[in-house]
Computed example of a mutant assay.
Amino acid sequence: MLHIWQVSGEELATIPAKQLSSVKALKRSLQHLCGFSRFRQRLLHNGSALDDMSTLEGDADLQLVLLPFVHGSKQADELADAAGNGLVSVVEELLQRPLNPDSVDQNGETPLYRACLIDSADTARLLLEAGADKDLACGQHHLTALVVASGLGHLDTVRVLLQAGADQEMCCDGLCGSDQGADLLREAGIDEGRIEAICGPDGVTALGAAASHGHLDTMRLLLESKSYTALQALHV
């Protein structure tokens, strides 16, 4: 059995080692107990930190240390740049420092936003695991990651965000809907009364962003995830 102890001396959990494949798996299982992602956890055995890829065997007493974020504009730019170039291994290393996944770069953009710009689903998935806010609006136009990915037709990152529970109904007023988008929504069977809220002059939702730029595959994905049935008119 693995006995996990907090710095306070209180036992947090007792877990059979055979249920876990690695230290990383143990950290993931502890997240719901301590409220910290694996990136902010350090597990010590006899005073030494265990590597995430280390295997767990037999009985052991492990101490859990929870780390604060390292802050700084240079670090924020470094993480955003790595995410914006799809450098998954670099993003992993930076999150391990640990850096805040919601830190913004000099342009006011988060790493998740930058990952969605290039459709790097693996990077987006990693940032979400680290606790990135899936609905945080940022950047020059104050857009959410889902609106950005949908407007660009980036299906892979849209899927990752939907699986993470990103808010499809959130309207971003940094973009205006288009007549083309409104027409596509009508063809999809969306009620006329809802079209302006989805793709109007005062802002767009993820579906409105996809429609405004003619990304039919993305529209279908968003509509299906909301269990809409009027999809036959979308010729995709």
Rank of each mutant, 00 (worst) to 15 (best):
E92H: 09
L127N: 10
C199Q: 01
G174H: 03
L207G: 00
S225V: 01
V160A: 11
R28I: 05
A182C: 06
R159L: 07
L143D: 05
L126N: 06
R194A: 12
K27P: 01
E92D: 14
L207S: 09
L155M: 14
L66K: 04
A83L: 04
R42W: 05
W5H: 11
E224M: 10
R159W: 11
V23K: 02
Q180P: 02
L155N: 10
D59S: 15
D173N: 15
A115C: 03
L94Q: 07
P16A: 08
A132L: 02
E169W: 06
I195V: 07
V148H: 02
K24G: 07
A80C: 15
T229W: 13
V104H: 12
R220M: 13
A145W: 03
L128H: 00
D156K: 06
V88I: 14
Q232P: 04
L87V: 08
T157Q: 05
N46K: 15
A13E: 10
A149E: 07
D173S: 10
C34L: 04
G72R: 00
V104F: 08
R125W: 02
G139S: 02
G214M: 12
D81H: 14
G9M: 03
D156W: 05
R220D: 05
V204E: 02
L126E: 04
R194I: 14
E78P: 01
R220V: 15
N107P: 02
E93Y: 11
K74V: 14
